[in-house]
Each structure stands twice: as structure tokens, then as C-alpha cells.
Design a protein around this nucleic acid. Structure first.
Length: 861
RNA sequence: GCCGAAGUGGCGGAAUUGGCAGACGCGCUGGACUCAAAAUCCAGUCUAGCUAACCCUAGGUGGGGGUUCGACUCCCCCCUUCGGCACCA
């Protein structure tokens, strides 16, 4: 007989809904815990079995913590803007709002079917105007903020204006010089343009990644995904919205160190930020006034710099090149510019061109040639390098192909057979009348040469980052409109806060506009506006925000989802942030997780949130493979549909199996047999408690447990609790299976321990646990029953098996009282017949006795 | 190429301040119940040798070496798989 999971599960899901069992008391005085799942993009395909894995893990954790007396915030919502809905709209002309709503309904139904304990009253939806009003509002906060490098934080743009008004730009590093008088004399437009180079959200004309098939630009972080799917991404200069994430590079790197995040994710973020320490060095061009500034991480190798290379797009290329080379250079440049960075990266053979000009190597005083080559990128460092083939593999390769001289300045080891030597070693060939590095190690040589360069005013220590600013606009319909108006005088105005949300206009057709503009450009009535403040006519910004915008702050909205006054109440934010546990896919390692940290830090600087970091502890659920151990995909026909599995075995079995498969973070294959296995286990649990009459099983008595069974019980309480705390759900389930095996063997089953077990099972398989709990006589849910306690004294075995070894080989075992003294153990070993046989006639050289563990006799002949 | 994680039965996986390898589950084998099946229950299940059987013996955690009374666990070298980065100067 199988337990009727279908009836039980819908009964309890209705009960939880009706009684609002999991509604968070946001003002509770209990200790607070915020546990977050990455909210899904509600695709048309519905939930796949990967979703319930992470969701079940956090659900178990939350249910456990509620029983431990915590007030738990555990919400769910929808990251619903995005390209798939829009592409579907292009094909069908069905408004993405409609498909999105349908998809959300499917997802909500499927998630509810799994009995996850979300507080559904806090559901958010990024496409809801009541939600994106605040996404737009945050955009305006970023637009109206600048990064003050002196204070190492973002500040309001008014503060910058005030400073320019009073003191000009003198104290602001890197700012074009403006005196207070000049600033005051600036026109509206001049002020606007000057400020725009500081804003955290700004417009720039730069080469971007344009995808013709998608009809939109993509962020650097997004390119790989689409290229993999077979789309072409090309570089094109376009005017685009950018987010100044680079201002936060150092802080994003530093603050991550304190987070409890998977090492691989930390590593990916570090890689993406790409911090490097080095120096700028100026090289004077022979017979000209220009100087070429290079960036290098190996200033110590400067004596080996035998040529320098500029990126083809470098602004000085035209100026310094020999006139005879002009047409050749032009051609090379054209080819290079059109190549995407991806292409540049995949081409292995190096190309380049001599410009005909030379610079002086300031260390050797000798002229060296200037080349251009597309292995040097304009966007990194200064777009120019000093090439040191002796210590750099790329430079070596280039030098070999073009027959350029190679000078070693670091002594390779004697057995060195390679070409460029990039590791640590002693400097050689590195001296001039003023300075000698010879004999120094790399790091000493670096500081010495930097010091020299700085003294001579031709170099400067500097830190560089690979991270680029975040390309924030998309030529799409289905996204948050950017609340900016382009006025006729060439300035920009923000949509007043009171007018937010700036609603998406309804469109008849969703096709790309045919130009590089968003389909919104076709909504002419929407686009044309008159600015209230200035009376100027203007055009609305027609680009929309990328999908990542909404997910950058959703975790804050859950805390205060209905507020019409603020995006999130500050007192509530203070009470609930940061997120203590965040679970989601590792594919967001550098996208969502970096963008969200960036916005959070900006909001922190501006005083809207009180924590530096949003997500304290992060875990990724591992991918679930198909039954054939290959990636699930429609074409392979190995996709498992959660609806069907729930229908066949029930939600509790799905939850239990997904947790029992293996460690949360590991990749692991689905197994229908495995689901059957946990389903059998739940049936055994059911039969343990419930007789065939549907009443409490008659062998359960209110009696005292045997010492042995009591021990198993306490061991189970201990292990299950500890395993949930450390998210090792698979071993917690094993222990529960052991308990059930033991309990089943008993003729008379003690009620107290069995009731305790139901509470242990509840976070994992809540429906069956609630049902058994009610059959055992309770009228209310067990969701807030106190978690069972264990006593360490009762966990310990009273007797232990001590291993007897001879020469480290297991020969015998003895069962002794726990903590039997070493002397006694030794005596037992000596008396043991098997041991005697193995020691017979041999000399005992050494005895190792470990209490409660083993006796090892080392014998010789 | 570099960085990170990991390699344990037929399968998913347990076991870490170094101390009984293979918990728990799946599968498989045999048995009980049944007219029969399903379901359920019981027993067995790392490999090889020896055995009628139990015992016993030897080997065994990707491969090789080392440290140690004792190594899945620590150290060195190598191999494989997965993930990431990859002209970032």
C-alpha cells in the first residue's frame, strides 16, 4: 500500500496558504534570517529539475531555522524582462506582457506544487511598473552621482557642482581644469557636458558589441553566451549608456575577500576585474616632441625593451608614422578595427607593421623602432607597450617573426631551454651610468627602477584593471525605459521623480526599428516631449535597460515590497540585510553577482543601504544531468519534467531525491530508480507511523526507549541538525534512513522519539510530516514546533569497538566500555588469541595505544 | 598555456585534527508471502586465493614514489575529467 501523496500534498499546500503559515513578520523581535534564491526568468518551457534543487535546499534551511526560533525572510519573484519574450512577440505579435504573465503563472503553479515555504505576499515582478518605477529611480540616483576618488566613494552630483562653483576642479584628480570663474561662466550645455564625464551613468560614443540578429548591443560579459549560440557579434562605434563600474574595481575586489563565497566564483570575479600592478613609462619619439606612454607590469625589464608597439587605433599612430607607410597603415587599421575582440583573441599568428619611426629607450638611451600590431589593445593600459621579448612570450613570438633583437635581462636557470623567460630571477644586462639593476631579484628591481623613473619624471607606478565600464543600454522593447529626455539644446534632462514610473508605451509591432534604434523609437507620441522645467522640446531616450537591471536590487524590494514612498525602508533594510544565504546558478558568477554588488555599493555610498555587501554566503547548486549523465537537452531527449515526477511520486519524493543525490554543489545525474528509492523510504516512514486503518500504528506506545534506540535517536537529531547547518543534505537523509531502519525493527516503538523524528523529517518532506503529525494528534502545523534537542551524553556509544593491529594490519577487535584506560587495552590485546598468534615468537618493538580507537603492536623477528 | 575543483564497488555517493574503506540508497543474487504478479519483508553483494561452508590469507580509494607504527586523508611527480581565464602587457 502506497501513501496517498496527492491528497496529502494538496491538503497541506492549501493549509499553508489559508493560514499564511510562512508569512514573514517583518517587525518580529526574533533573531532574523534572510535566505534568498536567485529568482528565475519565467521561460515558456516551464520549470526544469534544476530549479527545485536550489529551491529545496534553501527551503529545508528555512524550515529548520523557523523551528530553531528564527524569523525567516524567504521570498520569491520573477526576473521577467528579457529577450525571449520579445523574440516571441516579434514572431506572433502577442504582447510580451501577456506571454510573461502566462509564463509566471506556470512557474508559480509549479513552484507551489513543490511545497516551498515562500512568503508569497512579497512576490516581486521586474516588469511590474510598481517595481520598475524603483529600478528607474535607482538609475536616476546613479545618473545623479559621481565617484570621488579622494573619498573612495560615490557622492551626489550637486556636491560636485558646489565644489566646482567654489573651488573649481583643482582638487579633483584627472578632471580637466576649470577655475571657479570659468565654471560660473559656463553655459548650461557646457556644464552639462562637463558633469557627464563624472556621472556613474553616462552616455559615451565607443566601439560596442553589436549583434545584428538580435538587433541590440551586448555587454562584454554577455558576448560569450551569444557567440556560443551561433550569433555574430561585431564591433561598432555607437552612442550608448554606460555604468561606471570601473570606479568600484578596487572595492569590488577587496570586499569580496571577506565573503563566504565559492572559491571558483571569487576567482572568476578576480579574473574579470583583472587587477595588475605596474608602471607607466614615457618614451620620447625620435626627432619629434611627442612622447609615447606605455603601461607595463615589468618595468624591471626595461633594459630589454627592444621595440615598442602601439594598438592600431592608438591616437598617435597617424602623427608619428612615416608618410611612406600611411596607406599600408590605413589598410591594417581598417582590418583590425573590424575584428571583434573575440576574433583578435583567437588568431594565433601575430601580425604587425613598422611605422618607420623610433623612440628612445630611456634606460639604454638607444633608439628602438615603433610598430603597430593588433595584439596590443587600445582599451587596456595606455594602448601601447614596451616589448621585451626576453621576458615575454608574446613579444618573443613577435620579435622572431619580424626579426627584432632579443636581449635577456633576467638570468634564466642553467637548464633553461625555453624561449622567453617570465619567472623570477636575477637581473642581467640592466645597467647604465645612473642606475644598475644587475643582481637584483624581480621585485627589488621593480621598485628600484620605478623609483628612478619617477625621479626623472618619465614614469610612475600604477595599478590597472581589465574591468571595463558596463554597457547598460539595449535596443529592445521589453525592458525598463531609461528615464532620460534628450533636449533640443543637446543637454539631457531626467524624468522627474514624481512622474515615475515612466511606462513602456504599447506597441503594435515588436520588430527591430530597422536602424540601430530600439523599437521604442517607433512610438512617436511617446518619444516627443516638452521638458516642464525648461520648456525645451525633447526626445525620450529610446533604449531600454538590460535584463540585469531588475535583478540588481530585487533582494531589497522583498524587504519592503509595497512601499510607494521608498524603494526599501531604511529601518527594515537595516534589520534584515545582508542576505545570510544566497543560492543560485554559477552561470551568474560575473554577471548578476558583479552588477548587483556594484549597485549595492553605490546605494551604500549614497546612504540608502547600510551594508557594504549584499550577499554574505553564496552557494551554487550543481547542474543536474540527464539519466545518461549528459547535459539535459531537448535534442538528446533526456529532459526530466518536474510536473511528471511530482505526479508519479509526489513533491516530497522529488525534494528528498534532489537532496539525496549528492552534495548540493556537485554536478550529478538524474535517476528515476533513485526517486523510486526515496519514495519507498517515505512509504516506509508512513507505515512506521500509520496503520492500515489510517490511525496511529498500534506498535507505537508511550513508553521509554531502549538505551540503544535512544542513542540512535540522539545521533540522528545531532547529525540532521548539523548537516542542515552545513548544507549537507544527502548525509542528513542517510541518517534518517538509518533511524527508520532501526525503528522499524522494534516491536514496541517509543512515541517520544518517533514524534521527534517527524520534526526532523519535516524540513525535507514537509507534506508527509505534517500529515503524520496531525495523525499523531496535533491540530496545528508543525512549522513552528521547536526543533528537537539532543544530549551529547546520549549520543556517545557506551561501548566501543577497539581495533587490534599487528604491524598496522587489522587482526582482531574487542568491545570495551568507552574510555577504557590504555593499560587495560594493552592487556586485552596481549590476551587476544589472534593477536598472540601473529606475535608468536616475535619481539614486540613498539606499542601504539589510542584510547577508544586501537592498539597496534609493532613486531620484528 | 595558466588558475581552480575533483578522481573511492556495477551506479549515486559515505568516511579528514592520519586510526575498522565502501555508511545510506540504487542495481544485482537468493529466499519468504502469493495460484501468479505487483507491493512488502529477510539475507547476501570490493577483488583474488583457499574452502563443502565458516574461517583464514593477500590485494584494493586515477598511476608512481615518499613520510609514518598506521595514509582515501599529509608531501613530491605524473595522468584523467570538469569549470574558469587566455594576446590584459
Amino acid at each position: 500500500m502506497r501513501y496517498d501523496f496527492a491528497v496529502i500534498e494538496s491538503k497541506w499546500q492549501k493549509y499553508w496558504d489559508d493560514h499564511q503559515t510562512f508569512r514573514t513578520d517583518i517587525l518580529s523581535s526574533k533573531p532574523k534570517l534572510y535566505v534568498l534564491d536567485m529568482f528565475p526568468y519565467p521561460s515558456g518551457a516551464g520549470l526544469h529539475v534544476g530549479h527545485p534543487e536550489g529551491y529545496t535546499a534553501t527551503d529545508i534551511f528555512c524550515r529548520y531555522k523557523r523551528m530553531k526560533g528564527f524569523e525567516v525572510l524567504h521570498p520569491m519573484g520573477w526576473d521577467a524582462f528579457g529577450l525571449p519574450a520579445e523574440r516571441y512577440a516579434m514572431q506572433t505579435n502577442i504582447h510580451p506582457r501577456i506571454t510573461t504573465e502566462e509564463n509566471i503563472n506556470t512557474f508559480r503553479r509549479q513552484i507551489k506544487m513543490l511545497g516551498l515555504s515562500y512568503d508569497w505576499s512579497r512576490e516581486v515582478n521586474t516588469t511590474d511598473p510598481k517595481y520598475y518605477k524603483w529600478t528607474q529611480w535607482i538609475f536616476l540616483q546613479l545618473y545623479n552621482a559621481w565617484y570621488d576618488r579622494r573619498a573612495k566613494k560615490a557622492r551626489r552630483i550637486e556636491e560636485l557642482e558646489r565644489e566646482l562653483q567654489q573651488r573649481g576642479s583643482a582638487d579633483i584628480a584627472g578632471a580637466p581644469f576649470v577655475s571657479p570663474n570659468e565654471w560660473q561662466a559656463f553655459t548650461r550645455k557646457q556644464k552639462h557636458d562637463y558633469l557627464s564625464q563624472f556621472r556613474l551613468a553616462y552616455v559615451a560614443e565607443i566601439p560596442v558589441n553589436w549583434c545584428e540578429q538580435l538587433g541590440t548591443v551586448l555587454a562584454n560579459e554577455e558576448i560569450d553566451e551569444w557567440v556560443e549560440k551561433g550569433y555574430k557579434v561585431e564591433r561598432r562605434p555607437m552612442r550608448q549608456w554606460m555604468m561606471r563600474i570601473t570606479a568600484y574595481a578596487e572595492r569590488l575586489l577587496e570586499d569580496a575577500a571577506e565573503l563566504d563565497w565559492p572559491e571558483s566564483t571569487q576567482e572568476q570575479q578576480r579574473n574579470w576585474i583583472g587587477r595588475s600592478e605596474g608602471a607607466f613609462i614615457d618614451f620620447a619619439v625620435v626627432e619629434r616632441n611627442e612622447r609615447i606612454r606605455v603601461y607595463t607590469t615589468r618595468p624591471d625589464t626595461i633594459f630589454g625593451a627592444t621595440y615598442i608597439v602601439l594598438a592600431p587605433e592608438h591616437p598617435l599612430v597617424e602623427t608619428i608614422s612615416h608618410p611612406e607607410k600611411a596607406s599600408e597603415i590605413k589598410r591594417y587599421k581598417e582590418i583590425a578595427t573590424r575584428k571583434s575582440e573575440v576574433d583578435r583573441g583567437t588568431e594565433k599568428t601575430k601580425t604587425g607593421l613598422f611605422t618607420g619611426a623610433h623612440v628612445i629607450n630611456p634606460a639604454t638611451g638607444k633608439p628602438i623602432p615603433i610598430w603597430i600590431a593588433d595584439y596590443v589593445l587600445l582599451g587596456y593600459g595606455t594602448g601601447a607597450i614596451m616589448a621585451v621579448p626576453g621576458q615575454d612570450e608574446r613579444d618573443w613570438e613577435f620579435a622572431e617573426s619580424f626579426n627584432l633583437p632579443i636581449v635577456r635581462t633576467v638570468q634564466p636557470p642553467p637548464d633553461w631551454t625555453g624561449k622567453a623567460y617570465v619567472d623570477d630571477g636575477v637581473a642581467i644586462n640592466s645597467a647604465n651610468p645612473e642606475i644598475s639593476l644587475d643582481g637584483l631579484g624581480v621585485s627589488e628591481a621593480k621598485s628600484k627602477i620605478i623609483n628612478w623613473l619617477e625621479r626623472k619624471g618619465i614614469g610612475k607606478a600604477s595599478t590597472q584593471f581589465k574591468l571595463r565600464d558596463w554597457l547598460f543600454s539595449r535596443q529592445r522593447y521589453w525592458g525598463e525605459p531609461i528615464p532620460i529626455i534628450h533636449l533640443e539644446d543637446g543637454t539631457m534632462a531626467t524624468v522627474p521623480e514624481a512622474d515615475l514610473p515612466l511606462l513602456l508605451p504599447d506597441l503594435e509591432k515588436f520588430q527591430p526599428s530597422g536602424t540601430t534604434e530600439s523599437p521604442l523609437a517607433l512610438a512617436s507620441n511617446w518619444v516627443a516631449v516638452v521638458d516642464k522645467e525648461t520648456g525645451l522640446t525633447g526626445r525620450r531616450e529610446t533604449n531600454t535597460m538590460p535584463q540585469w537591471a531588475g535583478s540588481c536590487w530585487y533582494y531589497l524590494r522583498y524587504i519592503d515590497p509595497y512601499s510607494t514612498e521608498v524603494f526599501c525602508s531604511k529601518t527594515l533594510e537595516q534589520a534584515w540585510m545582508p542576505v545570510q544565504l544566497y543560492v543560485g546558478g554559477s552561470e551568474h558568477a560575473v554577471l548578476h553577482l558583479m552588477y548587483a554588488r556594484f549597485w549595492h555599493k553605490a546605494l551604500y555610498d549614497l546612504g540608502y543601504v547600510t551594508t557594504k555587501e549584499p550577499f554574505l554566503k553564496l552557494r551554487h547548486q550543481g547542474t543536474i544531468l540527464g539519466e545518461d549523465s549528459r547535459k539535459m537537452s531537448k535534442s538528446r531527449g533526456n529532459v526530466v519534467n518536474p510536473d511528471e515526477v511530482v505526479k508519479e511520486y509526489g513533491a516530497d519524493s522529488v525534494r528528498l531525491f534532489e537532496m539525496f543525490m549528492g552534495p548540493l554543489e556537485e554536478m550529478k545525474p538524474w535517476s528515476t530508480r533513485g526517486v523510486e528509492g526515496v519514495f519507498r523510504f517515505l512509504n516506509r516512514v508512513w507505515r512506521l507511523f500509520v496503520g492500515s486503518d489510517g490511525k496511529v500504528e498500534s506498535s507505537i506506545k508511550d513508553c521509554t526507549a531502549t538505551a540503544e534506540f535512544e542513542r540512535v535517536y540522539h545521533q540522528t537529531v545531532k547529525k540532521v541538525g548539523e548537516d542542515i547547518e552545513s548544507l549537507r543534505f544527502n548525509t542528513a537523509i542517510s541518517q534518517m534512513m538509518i533511524f527508520v531502519n532501526e525503528a522499524t525493527k522494534l516491536e514496541v516503538k517509543p512515541l517520544r522519539e518517533l514524534k521527534g523524528f517527524v520534526l526532523l523529517l519535516a524540513p525535507f518532506a514537509p507534506h508527509i510530516a505534517e500529515e503524520i503529525w496531525s495523525i499523531l494528534g496535533s491540530r496545528s502545523s508543525l512549522a513552528y514546533e521547536p526543533w528537537p534537542q539532543f544530549h551529547e551524553s546520549k549520543v556517545k556509544e557506551s561501548k566501543v569497538e577497539v581495533v587490534l593491529q599487528v604491524n598496522g594490519k587489522l587482526r582482531s577487535k574487542v568491545l570495551v566500555e568507552i574510555d577504557t584506560p590504555e593499560g587495560e587495552l594493552e592487556r586485552l590485546a596481549n590476551e587476544d588469541e589472534v593477536i598472540r598468534r601473529h606475535c608468536d615468537g616475535k619481539k614486540i618493538l613498539k606499542k601504539i595505544v589510542v584510547k577508544n580507537k586501537l592498539v597496534n603492536l609493532v613486531v620484528g623477528n
